[in-house]
Design a binder for these strands. Structure first.
Length: 416
RNA sequence: GAGCACGUAGUUCAAUCGGUAGAGCGCCAGUUUGUGGUUCUGGUUGUUGUGGGUUCAAGUCCCAUCGUGCUCCCCA
């Protein structure tokens, strides 16, 4: 049997309501903050991501869907949004007219990984980016927007982890120091971390391996390398969060896996997800625009994993499954009366009601059963008696009450 | 990319040591030939993921493959 590609899923009618619900909240919250949606192509020239996300990252090294098109261009299905978004902003000069651009997005992304709970090869992200301001006010705004979204969804029992990486020069000097420290402890590191040391030494910090945890206890701390300006920036952020009553936990080992971050980085974690416990994350990226050939544009943003959000909502039972009600079901027996079915259903549809009727010539009883199963609010009954008397039976399926209505009075009835 | 577990009816799950594939739910029909939901009665469903092997005999054991779950890696 033909089946969907490994790590991809069909979103069938029984879950699509959940998606509409959550998308509605994305729109509602971003609107309150005056963020504008943008959509970019699902693939880009590979360079956008190799330069944007960073050559040293796992995403670029082993997780991208990269292929050649017939014009022999190397193209890649987007593994994340920030690089695409920055490319689009530069190309369309979106920051020229406004001093600050506030943008949000929602859509599918692709990474070649081993599928697991909360991890697919095609997955969806919702995210927002605040462009052009280097000030911590924009970090706060982004965190506040994320917080609003989480609260609007009703998600509970989550943690916001926060850290500052400082500016590029403090990261570089820290990296140097950390690398030489880790090299001195090389033999005590896990196999994975020995490999990481060359590629991305910062990642050794958030390893779960016990051997690594032992070593990193005594490792130099990132916070000691921040210059005054970076410290002040971070202090502004934490002070504001305190003031806003947004709970957070400072974790000096939080570094995140993408090359472009500096200053504030953060991650949202939930206990409902199992091993893949982070359902959102983000941070500041001041250098990315220049990296992709644009003018200097400091920025900060976040992304949420939509499948993971839905998993949390489901385990918290925050999703109401039965919002699929039907307004009218038309029961008709006698195929010669089908024109009445169409006439009445058209009338109802014109007034905005949803209508179902039988097309498989089921028995009278089965049609009523159908009506019940589809949770129709009303059934309209059409049969010989009704046609002869020009009085159609309308049955309230909740109370069981019935009334007779003439065809020409239907529009009045329908408007209540 | 590495390790472990699992895959049986539409669905959730049984099937003892290798010995006739079964139940609940659902679905269909009937319960005075024009009235649903609740009862009651009857009926329906399978290439045991796929392909090979061992055996008198395989859902069960072995190999391969596809898929899923968990852990690592990584990330949302």
């Amino acid at each position: 049997m033909l089946q969907a590609v490994r790590g991809t899923k069909d979103l069938l009618p029984d879950v699509i309501n959940d998606w509409h619900y959550i998308e509605e909240i994305f729109r509602k919250v971003t609107k309150k903050f005056n963020y504008k949606e943008l959509r970019t192509p699902i693939f880009e020239y590979t360079e956008v991501f190799s330069r944007g996300v960073g050559e040293g990252t796992d995403i670029v090294n082993k997780e991208m869907y990269t292929f050649q098109d017939k014009g022999e261009n190397s193209l890649t299905l987007r593994p994340e949004m920030t690089a695409s978004l920055v490319r689009a902003v530069i190309q369309n000069n979106l920051t020229a007219q406004e001093t600050v651009a506030r943008l949000w997005y929602f859509g599918p992304f692709f990474r070649y990984e081993r599928p697991q709970k909360g991890r697919q090869r095609q997955f969806h992200q919702f995210g927002a980016e605040c462009l052009s301001s280097a000030n911590p006010e924009s970090d706060v705004e982004i965190l506040l927007l994320a917080d609003n979204l989480i609260k609007e969804l009703g998600i509970k029992d989550y943690k916001l982890l926060l850290n500052s990486l400082g500016n590029k020069s403090s990261i570089l000097s820290y990296k140097k120091e950390l690398t030489s420290f880790l090299k001195s402890e090389f033999e005590n590191l896990s196999e994975d971390s020995k490999r990481r040391l060359d590629q991305n030494p910062l990642r050794v910090l958030d390893s779960k391996d016990e051997k690594d945890l032992k070593v990193t206890q005594n490792a130099p701390k990132l916070i000691d390398f921040l210059d005054e300006e970076s410290k002040e920036h971070f202090k502004f952020v934490t002070n504001s969060l305190d003031h806003l009553n947004i709970n957070y936990e400072i974790n000096h080992k939080l570094v995140r896996g993408l090359d472009y971050y500096s200053h504030t980085v953060f991650e949202f974690q939930s206990n409902y997800l199992g091993s893949q416990d982070s359902f959102g994350g983000g941070g500041r990226y001041n250098e990315l625009f220049e990296e992709l050939g644009g003018k200097h544009t400091p920025a900060v943003g976040f992304a949420f994993g939509v499948e993971r959000l839905l998993m949390i909502l489901e385990s918290q039972k925050l999703i109401n499954k039965n919002n699929n009600n039907l307004d009218f079901y038309i029961v008709c027996f006698g195929k010669e009366y089908f024109s009445y079915v169409i006439e009445i259903s058209t009338l109802l549809q014109k007034n905005g009601y949803s209508v179902n009727y039988d097309i498989s010539r089921k028995s009278f009883k089965s049609q009523l059963k159908d009506s019940d199963k589809l949770k129709a609010n009303f059934s309209v009954i059409i049969g010989e008696n009704e046609v002869i008397s020009n009085q159609f039976v309308v049955k309230n399926m909740i109370s069981g009450e019935q009334m007779k209505i003439k065809l020409e009075n239907f529009s009045k009835f329908v408007k209540f």
